[in-house]
Structure formats: structure tokens, C-alpha cells
Design a protein around this nucleic acid. Structure first.
Length: 145
DNA sequence: TAGGCCATCTGGTCCT
DNA sequence: AGGACCAGATGGCCTA
């Protein structure tokens, strides 16, 4: 199941409530990325004097940079997809929470709490169902229909 | 201030 | 190959 484009994901991301934390994280990532720079390895290579050799090395450097950029943009796309996926998960939790009776809409409920309450609510419903089955069996022993 | 919760990033694994 | 899913790490926010 593929979700929307990276652009629309980014839009959603911009609109998400945890934006400040998110941008901080993005900055951290950007910092990491700029620190990790394999391209600098080629500094000594510049000392070589052969023109042809220099050209080849320059090409290699450019291709390494392109590869690095490609990897980074792939990572960014994967991050966006992951954010979208987690947003879907959070929405599902919210929906589950609203379907729980006796829980006011403005109640602060963690995901774990939501899961636990939902689980106990299901048990409760199952029990009701069982009692109802017993009642209908014994309340009307004879049916004219 | 410690601890809980959350969002995000990331690398690994599985699946199509 | 690329996307989905997962779990671990990290940092921010909030509350007792």
C-alpha cells in the first residue's frame, strides 16, 4: 500500500502538531549528514599531478557525491513514509478511543491506556452477549413462531 | 527533577 | 528495487 507523494507527506508533516520536535530532529539529522562526508577523503588525491588521473578522480568524486545525495534523498523519502505511517497509527488510536464508552472526548488517554480499556470493553461486551444468549434460551422455551 | 509519553529518525528485515 | 513494517535510540514536552 503506497501512500501519497513525498511532497504531500511533507505538507502533512508541516501541519502536524509535533512540528517543533520534528524540525529539531530534522536539524539533528542534517547536522549528522554534514558531519559524515566521505567526499573529503579525496583531498590527498588532489596532490596527484597527472591531468588524466585528476580528471578520473574528479569524476569519481562527483559520482560519490551523487550517490550520497541519492542515498540521502531516499532516506528522507523513507522518513516521510514512516511519519505518515505513524500518523495513520495515531489516528487509529484516536478513533479507537472515541469508540470507547464512558470515556469523555477530552480525556487524556495514552495509547497503552486506550489499548487496555478497549480490551476490557471487548471482554465486557462478550460477557453481555453470553448472558443474553442464556436469557433468550430460557426465557422463551416454547415458541409459536 | 525524574519518569512517562510521544514523535521522529534510522537501519534491518520481509514482502511484492 | 522499493515500500511496508518493526524495534531501538533520541530528544522534547508535561506532570507529579
Amino acid at each position: 500500500m503506497s501512500t501519497g507523494s513525498a511532497a504531500s507527506d511533507a505538507d502533512d508533516y508541516e501541519a502536524s502538531p509535533g512540528r517543533s520536535a520534528a524540525s529539531a530532529a530534522l536539524e539533528r539529522t542534517a547536522r549528522k549528514v554534514t558531519c559524515y562526508d566521505p567526499g573529503r577523503y579525496s583531498d590527498e588525491e588532489l596532490d596527484d599531478d597527472g591531468a588524466e588521473e585528476g580528471r578520473v578522480k574528479q569524476e569519481r568524486r562527483v559520482s560519490r557525491a551523487a550517490h550520497r545525495d541519492a542515498r540521502q534523498s531516499q532516506r528522507n523519502a523513507a522518513n516521510a513514509r514512516e511519519r505518515a505511517r505513524m500518523r495513520v497509527l495515531s489516528k487509529a488510536f484516536s478513533r479507537l478511543k472515541t469508540s470507547l464508552p464512558w470515556v469523555p472526548a477530552d480525556t487524556k488517554l495514552s495509547k497503552l491506556d486506550t489499548l487496555r480499556l478497549a480490551s476490557s470493553y471487548i471482554s465486557h461486551l462478550r460477557q453481555l452477549l453470553q448472558e443474553d444468549r442464556l436469557e433468550t434460551r430460557f426465557a422463551h422455551p416454547v415458541s409459536l413462531v
